[in-house]
Simulated scan of single mutants.
Amino acid sequence: MWILFALLAAISAAVVVTLSKAGIKHVDSSLAFAIQSVLILIVSWSVVIVQGNLPDVSRIERRVWIYLIIAGVVTCLSSLFSFRALKLGNASQVSPITNASLLFSVILAAVFLKEKVSWQVIMGALLMVAGAIIIAVTKE
Rank of each mutant, 00 (worst) to 15 (best):
M1V: 13
W2E: 11
W2Q: 09
I3K: 00
L7N: 04
A9P: 03
A9S: 14
A10R: 00
S12L: 06
A14F: 06
V16E: 15
V17G: 02
T18M: 08
L19Y: 12
G23S: 08
I24N: 08
I24C: 03
D28G: 06
A32L: 03
F33N: 13
V38W: 04
V38P: 00
V38D: 07
L39D: 01
I40N: 11
S46G: 15
V47G: 09
V47P: 09
V50I: 15
P55E: 12
R59D: 15
I60S: 03
E61D: 14
E61A: 13
R62P: 00
I66G: 02
Y67N: 07
I70S: 06
A71V: 11
G72L: 05
G72H: 07
V74R: 00
L77T: 14
L77N: 03
S79P: 00
S79L: 14
L80Y: 14
F81A: 14
S82K: 05
A85E: 11
N90H: 08
N90P: 02
V94Y: 05
S95D: 12
P96I: 02
L102G: 06
A110M: 11
V117N: 05
V121W: 00
I122H: 01
M123E: 12
A125D: 12
L127H: 04
L127G: 03
M128N: 04
M128V: 15
V129A: 08
V129W: 02
G131L: 02
I133M: 10
I134N: 02
K139Y: 11
E140W: 03
E140S: 10
E140T: 07
